[in-house]
Each structure stands twice: as C-alpha cells, then as structure tokens.
Computed example of a mutant assay.
Amino acid sequence: MHRTSPHEYFLDASGVEPAVFELRPDYRALLLVADGLDMAPSNPVSDDLVDAAEVHARALLGAGPVEDLPHIAAWRAAYRAFGAKPQRTRNSLQALTRRAADRLPRVNALTDIYNAVSVLHQVPIGGEDLALYRGPARLVRATGDEPFEAFADGVPTVEHPSAGEVVWRDDLGVTCRRWNWRQGPRTALSERTRTAFFIFDALDPMTDEALGAAATALSSALDRMSPGIDVSRRLVSAE
C-alpha cells in the first residue's frame, strides 16, 4: 500500500493564500523537495552548469537590457502591484541574471546548481533547508507584524515586512521577503543540509511546461551530484 511520505505531507500542506492570486491570477509556484543530498563543494557537475548559465546570461543581455527580458519584466510589474520599487529591490531572477553576465559566485554545488538553473531557465528559484522549517510554507500578504530574521552589518536583527507585502512564511515567521527578493538566514542551506526545499516562482509568459522543465533540470543535476535522491514536487496555481 502506498504511504504518503512526510515530504508529500509538507507539500500538500503548503500553499498560496487567495489574496496573492487576486494580485496576480497568473502566478504559479512549483514546490520541490529533494531528500538524501550529499552536500559537496563546487564540482564538475555544478561548474559546467554555472559556465553555461554565464554564457546564456551574456547572450540574453547582448540582445537588450535585463529589465526587458519577458519574465523579469513580469516580476517587475508584480513588485509594483504590492508597492515595492523594482529599481531598489530587484527580483531574484533579475539580480542573478545581471550578475551571471559577469560571473556567478561559486558557493557550493547545491547553491551553484540552483542558481545556474534559475538563469538558464529564466525563473526565480529559492532554496532552503527543509529541516529548519516549522510547519508548512505559505505565500501570503503580510500584516506587517511577522518577524523576519536577518543580519544588518553582520549583526543579527529582526525586521518586519510592510503591510500587504507578499512574503513566504512558516509557523515561526517570514522565510523570504517581497515574494522572491531576499531569503532569511534561519532556513538557509548549509553544509548540514540533507533535505532541500525549492520554490520556483512563475508568472505569464512562462508556461507550465517551461516551469516543469526547469524543475526537471534541477532534479537531474541534483541526482548527478547525489545519486539516488528522493524528489517530490507539487504545482500550486489559482486553478
């Protein structure tokens, strides 16, 4: 008899509140859990992907400004819709694509791989340590009271999102501010991570097929790094 894994329970309990879909009915979140990871430093698998991402970013920006790339432009509009200024708080895809055109940092194989997939498939991706979550992941419009653990000048601090800001959160507080702008250190990936949780954020004109292809690319690369990993995923949409 099939038994639902704890990771599938987590994915089933995670979701997006209706107020976010009212803001952007075209929004979709593909949630992916990869279990059984063997954290490693940057290696040939991750290096090849990062090299390809840098070449791709240069080609994209050689054709026009980063702000005009279709999915990045859609995210800039989404930021404006909840009051964020995209000139000051760039969505993660815009920031990463611009950086990749010069050179992406080599952090560790896991981080390098998901950064490269983000640039190659032009989709914002967040990566976190599932063991550090408390309760399911929810995308909500903030009240402004939720805590967000961060660092200011290297010193731990607690911030609060603006009322109406779109944030990812768990039972303890905010895990990522302004949809996909800045992840918090509380749930960050580290050398101790064995189970990673990834969030792929999509708006039109990105299709469900393209979103799924990005998730498959990430899963395949992670499996090459850590053969035999267990992957679960779920697509959340207004439909």
Rank of each mutant, 00 (worst) to 15 (best):
V140M: 04
Y114Q: 04
E149K: 08
T111M: 13
T193I: 09
S118H: 05
V107D: 06
A152P: 00
T207K: 03
R141A: 01
V155Q: 12
G164A: 02
E191H: 11
P185H: 04
V158G: 02
G127Y: 09
L218Q: 03
N108H: 13
Q183I: 03
F198P: 09
V158E: 05
F198H: 12
T143P: 00
Y133S: 02
E146M: 10
G144N: 09
V123A: 03
D171F: 11
V155G: 00
W179S: 11
P185Q: 01
D170N: 12
R186W: 08
A196G: 13
S118A: 15
V166I: 15
L189K: 02
R192M: 08
P227S: 04
L120V: 10
A152Q: 07
R177G: 13
E165H: 10
D145M: 03
T175R: 14
D153Q: 13
F197K: 00
A142N: 08
T195P: 04
T143C: 02
D145I: 01
D129R: 00
Q183H: 12
W179N: 01
D145C: 04
E146W: 12
A152W: 12
R186Y: 07
R192D: 14
A116E: 07
P227W: 06
R182W: 08
A196Q: 03
A131G: 05
R224C: 05
S226K: 05
